[in-house]
Amino acid sequence: MLIHPQFDPVALSLGPVHIHWYGLTYLTAFGLFYWLAVRRAAQAPFAQAGWHRQAIEDLLFFGVMGVILGGRLGYVLFYKPAHYLAHPGEILAVWQGGMAFHGGLLGVIAAMALYARLRQRTFREVADLVAPCVPIGLAAGRLGNFVNGELWGRVTTADVPWAMVFPQSGSDLPRHPSQLYQFALEGLLLFAVLQWYGRKPRPLGRVAALFLIGYGTLRFVAEAFREPDDFLGLLALNLSMGQWLCVPMVALGALMWVTAKKDAPQPVGQEA
């Protein structure tokens, strides 16, 4: 069996200031998004609709706020509502850990909707630009989870060649390195699919719809190998909270897919 390397979570210490690997993965994710979004904004029809570097910088600011606020509030509401109701002062204590992807997704959706309204663009246009730029940042986040030795997988048999012992789990049982499964599926694979699909003009909303369907499906699969949260366990139908949260995500993606316009996207808004 493999043993988790037990990385030092602190990448760099500058006196009393400690820079953690997990924080660096967030910075990497935002940096990759910016680079990819600028390149995508230069493609037709986005460039023809007035998208430019400054617009991407503004959109990134909205997105960062959505990720942080939505991710934290999602964790509070989806995973530990009773605890935070009893300890409201801890809701903003993000340094104690606790972020939820699905909450972050809702936060980003709200941020994109606000951005679209302020810039007089359609939500689907903004979402189609954003969607292919997101998965590679998710991949960076999963590497951060692996470095921290958190969100480990379910117990498996020792004859699985890549089975790994995570000392943080409090046992020496072999487990699936589910963080790496998610890195490969929700990160690299979904990134490749969306980059391929989003390269050509598509009906407005289809690229974002594919992201929702693809992520929801791949996350649902990966969750089958991930240890459910010990304070929740498995819920109805022996599904984890993460799997149940994927169901409305896929349903929304399917709805966006079937209601997408049949013609190629023709964004009409202009950036100020």
Rank of each mutant, 00 (worst) to 15 (best):
F123A: 03
Y75M: 07
G137D: 06
A113E: 06
H83V: 08
P132W: 11
G97R: 03
G103C: 03
R72E: 05
R119V: 00
L118M: 08
V94W: 09
H102N: 04
P81F: 08
T122F: 05
E90C: 03
T122M: 11
A127R: 07
P135L: 04
G97T: 08
A86H: 09
H83M: 09
L118F: 10
L118S: 06
A100S: 13
L106S: 10
I136P: 08
I91A: 10
A86T: 07
T122S: 15
Y75I: 04
H87Q: 14
A93C: 08
A110F: 08
D128F: 04
W95M: 02
F101G: 01
G137V: 05
A100T: 09
L105I: 01
R119T: 14
V76E: 04
E90S: 08
F123T: 03
Y84F: 15
A86V: 00
Q120K: 15
P135C: 02
V94H: 07
H102C: 01
G71D: 10
I91R: 02
R124F: 15
I136N: 05
A86N: 06
G97D: 05
Y84V: 03
P135Y: 03
Q96A: 13
A127S: 13
D128L: 02
G74S: 08
I136E: 15
V94D: 06
M112T: 02
A86P: 00
V94M: 13
P81Y: 05
P135W: 03
R121K: 08
F123L: 08
A82R: 14
V76G: 13
I136G: 10
L129A: 11
D128V: 04
Q120A: 14
E125C: 12
L92F: 12
Q120D: 05
V76I: 14
G104I: 09
P132C: 08
L77R: 07
L129Q: 09
L73C: 12
I109Y: 00
L92A: 15
G71Y: 06
L73Q: 00
Y115W: 10
Q96F: 04
Q96P: 14
L73Y: 05
A86K: 09
G74Q: 12
A111T: 03
W95N: 11
G71A: 11
G89K: 00
R117S: 06
V130L: 10
L114A: 14
M112D: 03
A110N: 11
L77N: 03
Y75A: 11
L138T: 13
L118I: 01
G71S: 12
A100K: 07
R119F: 05
A100M: 01
F78N: 14
V108L: 02
V126M: 11
L106Y: 09
A139W: 01
Y75Q: 14
A93Y: 10
G74N: 13
C133A: 15
G137F: 04
L77C: 10
L118V: 01
G107R: 06
D128Y: 05
A113F: 13
F78H: 13
E90D: 15
H83W: 15
A113M: 14
G107H: 03
H83T: 10
Q120L: 05
H83D: 10
Q120I: 00
L73P: 05
G107I: 02
M99L: 15
I109S: 01
A127G: 13
G74P: 14
M99D: 14
R124L: 15
